[in-house]
């Protein structure tokens, strides 16, 4: 019987167990407590990688491996995302046909605000990501929306991230049961195993960060969105958060969701919230 209970416990994901261990106040039938979750989540990674500076977690696989860190520093001298950044800056400044610009859709004219996305919109009752907000801005101004996974969207978010570099992630959960539910739903999505390979997002990014899966070094889940969007040689181009989620799902033979589906929005909300306090580092470059 005792062995059984421990097996059941074992079937919870590593980090969920870590939550329980790290905060004894959280009981089995726990209430949603994002503050405690974020603290436990961060502590899990800080303890697992005591030599990594906290603000370095936002550099994905590079944070965990000295050789790669050197590669990254070399890359940053001629960053492969530069063309996207330039394009994004120009697009951002170019008025729509109606004369308005992206700046009209965002607080502070869209400059230095990346750290506040995604946010929970209490009117809509849903999570709104930066990519979604950009397309809504376009549509509100009579322009066709961009593909969520292609270059234009990545260029725009690259520019907005760049103007926010160094600002710390600052995601709020308003006093609204639906916001808590979105957080919880994102957390559940993140820890649920799926697909023929039976992986959860956490299998790779919580259980195995720093390990090589074939030739690739797995990024830690902590701060995993702070560098978005990213340039990847494998893609020969830029990729948005949507593109990365879809790629991770399909590479593990799980059915990818539509970009900006509720689950993806919620998982982005969860991952961004638990990265609160860590700096924006996007756009990023990856091998």
């Amino acid at each position: 019987m005792k062995a059984r209970t421990s097996c059941l416990l074992g079937s919870l994901s590593a980090a969920l167990v870590a939550f329980v261990l790290a905060s004894p106040r959280v009981s089995a039938a726990d209430k949603v407590d994002p503050v405690a979750d974020a603290r436990a989540f961060q502590n899990f990674f800080f303890q697992k990688f005591p030599n990594v500076k906290h603000e370095d977690f936002v550099n994905g696989p590079y944070s965990l491996n000295e050789d790669m860190k050197r590669q990254w520093q070399e890359k940053e001298e001629f960053p492969p995302y530069e063309f996207a950044l330039d394009a994004g800056k120009e697009m951002f400044a170019t008025p729509f046909k109606n004369g308005k610009t992206y700046a009209d859709c965002f607080p502070n004219g869209g400059i230095g605000v990346r750290q506040n996305y995604p946010y929970f919109d209490t009117k809509e009752g849903k999570v709104v990501t930066l990519e979604l907000a950009l397309n809504r801005c376009r549509e509100a101004n009579g322009e066709a929306p961009y593909s969520y996974v292609k270059d234009e969207m990545a260029s725009l978010t690259a520019y907005m991230a760049f103007t926010s570099r160094g600002k710390t992630m600052d995601i709020r959960i308003p006093d609204d049961p639906r916001a808590l539910e979105a957080f919880e739903n994102g957390k559940r999505y993140f820890y649920t195993r799926r697909g023929q390979m039976n992986f959860s997002c956490a299998s790779c990014h919580v259980q195995s960060p720093g390990e090589r899966i074939r030739a690739e070094i797995l990024a830690p889940a902590l701060g995993i969105l702070n560098a978005m969007p990213i340039y990847r040689s494998e893609w020969s181009g830029m990729g948005t958060t949507s593109r990365r989620f879809i790629t991770c799902n399909s590479q593990t033979r799980a059915v990818p969701l539509e970009p900006q589906s509720d689950e993806y929005r919620d998982v982005e909300y969860f991952l961004s919230y638990v990265a609160n306090g860590l700096p924006i580092s996007g756009p990023g470059a990856r091998p």
């Binding site: 079937s11 994901s13 023929q196 039976n198 992986f199 299998s203 259980q207």
Partner: peptide, 17 residues
């Protein structure tokens, strides 16, 4: 997963891989 519920190793037989 029968031996180790948290394992990363895919269940090749059970999931018909």
């Amino acid at each position: 997963t029968k031996r180790n519920p948290q394992t990363m190793m895919p269940p090749f037989g059970r999931n018909r891989i």
